[in-house]
């Protein structure tokens, strides 16, 4: 299953990785080899098999809603490349898009 260089570039963009033309070349053959390997699974007949949601045969692992101590702000910020008072400091974001 060959991956086009366009597809590799897209994956690179989604992963925020800048790729050189040589890397695109290299990764497209490497990624294709991985996909080919996984593709072997198709040889199995899975018609009657329920899709698996998790590799472990357990469910409903829950935690009580009780606070536990975390890190102090100093510790939390300790490994950050940049901080500003009690905040992490990051490059200015202009796009007002938010998560969730």
């Amino acid at each position: 299953m060959a991956l086009s260089s366009k597809e590799v570039l897209k994956v690179g963009t989604l992963s925020r990785i800048r790729l050189t033309p040589e890397e695109v070349e290299k990764f497209s053959s490497q990624l294709s080899a991985i996909l080919d390997y996984v593709d072997k699974l198709r040889e199995l007949d899975t018609a009657g098999v329920e899709p698996l949601a998790h590799a472990l045969p357990i469910h409903n692992v829950l935690r009580p809603d009780e606070p536990r101590p975390g890190l102090a702000p100093e510790q939390a910020l300790g490994g950050a490349p940049q901080s500003d008072g009690d905040f992490f400091r990051v490059p200015r974001i202009l796009n007002e898009e938010a998560g969730a």
Binding site: A76, Q82, G85, D86, F87, F88, V90, P91, R92, G99
Partner: peptide, 19 residues
């Protein structure tokens, strides 16, 4: 939910994050 992103006061060219 995600954290809170705020623009630094005083027009600095960076943003700050509270997680």
């Amino acid at each position: 939910d995600a954290g809170k992103l705020m623009h630094a006061e005083g027009g600095g060219n960076y943003s700050v994050v509270d997680l």
